[in-house]
Deep mutational scan, measured.
Amino acid sequence: KNAAKIVNEALNQGITLFVSDNKLKYKTNRDSIPSELLEEWKQHKQELIDFLTQLES
């Protein structure tokens, strides 16, 4: 999976991924984040940080 797909899947579940101080963060109104999503974010962390940083610049 690529970073764009992961970010879109998160958005579809009401979760916004973003970068703050070079760290991957998220915002959501959900009570909890599915563990498989958290695991996927960890596996692709640097790719996600790079992707989101490019989007914001």
Rank of each mutant, 00 (worst) to 15 (best):
K1V: 13
Y26D: 01
L38A: 05
F51V: 02
Q46V: 08
S35F: 12
T28H: 06
T16Q: 11
D50V: 08
I33S: 02
L52M: 03
T53Q: 10
D50P: 03
K25Y: 15
S20K: 12
Y26A: 06
N22R: 06
R30Q: 07
E9F: 06
D31R: 09
S57P: 13
I15R: 00
K27I: 12
I33V: 11
Q43T: 13
E9Q: 08
P34L: 03
D50G: 06
L24Q: 00
K23M: 13
G14R: 04
D31E: 12
S57T: 13
N8A: 15
K45H: 14
A10F: 03
V19W: 04
A4H: 07
I6F: 03
Q43W: 07
Q13L: 15
E40W: 05
L11A: 12
T53F: 06
E36S: 10
L55K: 09
A3K: 01
Q54M: 13
L48K: 00
E9D: 11
T28A: 06
I33M: 04
E47W: 04
K25I: 08
Q54W: 11
A4W: 13
E9R: 10
W41P: 00
K23H: 08
K42F: 13
A10E: 00
T16A: 06
A10S: 04
Q43F: 08
T16Y: 15
S57R: 14
S20T: 12
K25H: 14
Y26V: 05
P34M: 03
N8E: 15
D31V: 11
I49S: 02
N8P: 01
A4I: 07
E47P: 04
I49V: 07
S57M: 11
S35D: 13
H44I: 05
I33Y: 03
L52V: 02
P34Q: 04
T16C: 15
L55C: 10
N2L: 12
K45T: 15
K45L: 15
E47Q: 09
D50W: 11
N22Y: 06
E56T: 12
E36T: 11
L17D: 01
K5T: 15
Q54S: 14
I6W: 03
I6D: 01
K1I: 09
I33H: 02
E56M: 13
Y26T: 03
N29V: 08
V7C: 05
A10Y: 02
A3Y: 04
L37M: 14
E40V: 13
N2E: 10
D21N: 08
N29S: 13
K27Q: 08
Q54L: 11
Q46E: 11
K42Q: 14
L17G: 01
H44Q: 05
T16S: 06
K1E: 08
D21Y: 05
L17C: 03
H44A: 06
E47H: 05
A4R: 09
E39T: 07
D50C: 07
I49Q: 03
K25E: 11
W41Y: 04
P34D: 05
E40N: 07
I6H: 02
G14S: 04
N8L: 15
E39F: 07
T28F: 04
Q43E: 12
S20V: 15
L37T: 05
S20L: 13
L48C: 00
T16D: 05
K1L: 12
N12Y: 09
E40Y: 09
L24Y: 01
V7E: 01
T16R: 09
Q13T: 04
Q54K: 14
D31L: 11
E9A: 08
E36P: 06
N12T: 12
I6N: 01
K42A: 14
S35W: 10
E9Y: 06
K27P: 01
V7A: 04
N22K: 08
K23C: 12
F18G: 04
A10G: 03
L11I: 07
A3S: 05
V7F: 13
L55W: 10
Q46T: 09
F18L: 07
K27T: 11
V19Y: 05
L52E: 00
E56Y: 08
D21A: 06
E9L: 05
T28M: 04
E40G: 04
D21W: 04
K1P: 08
W41R: 00
K45F: 14
Y26C: 07
Q43Y: 10
E47Y: 04
I49Y: 04
H44N: 10
E47I: 09
H44T: 03
A10I: 01
K27H: 11
I49T: 03
N29H: 11
L24E: 00
S57W: 04
A4Y: 08
S57N: 13
L38D: 03
T53C: 08
T53E: 06
I15A: 03
N12F: 09
Q54V: 08
L38S: 04
K27G: 05
K27D: 06
D50R: 08
Q46K: 09
E36D: 11
K42P: 01
I6M: 11
S35Y: 11
R30K: 10
T28W: 04
Q46S: 08
K23Q: 14
I49E: 03
L38P: 03
E36I: 08
D21R: 05
P34G: 04
G14E: 04
T53G: 07
H44M: 08
H44S: 05
L37D: 02
S35N: 12
D21M: 06
L24M: 03
K42M: 15
T16F: 15
S57C: 11
E47V: 07
P34H: 04
F51P: 00
L38F: 08
N2S: 15
P34C: 04
E39G: 05
T16N: 07
L11F: 10
W41D: 00
N12S: 15
I6V: 04
G14A: 04
N12V: 13
F51C: 02
L48Y: 00
H44R: 07
K5H: 13
Q13I: 09
A10M: 03
K42E: 15
K42L: 15
W41H: 02
K23R: 08
E40D: 10
Q46G: 06
I33T: 03
T16V: 15
K27N: 08
K25D: 08
L52C: 02
T53I: 12
I33P: 04
L17M: 04
S32D: 10
E40S: 08
I49W: 04
E47C: 07
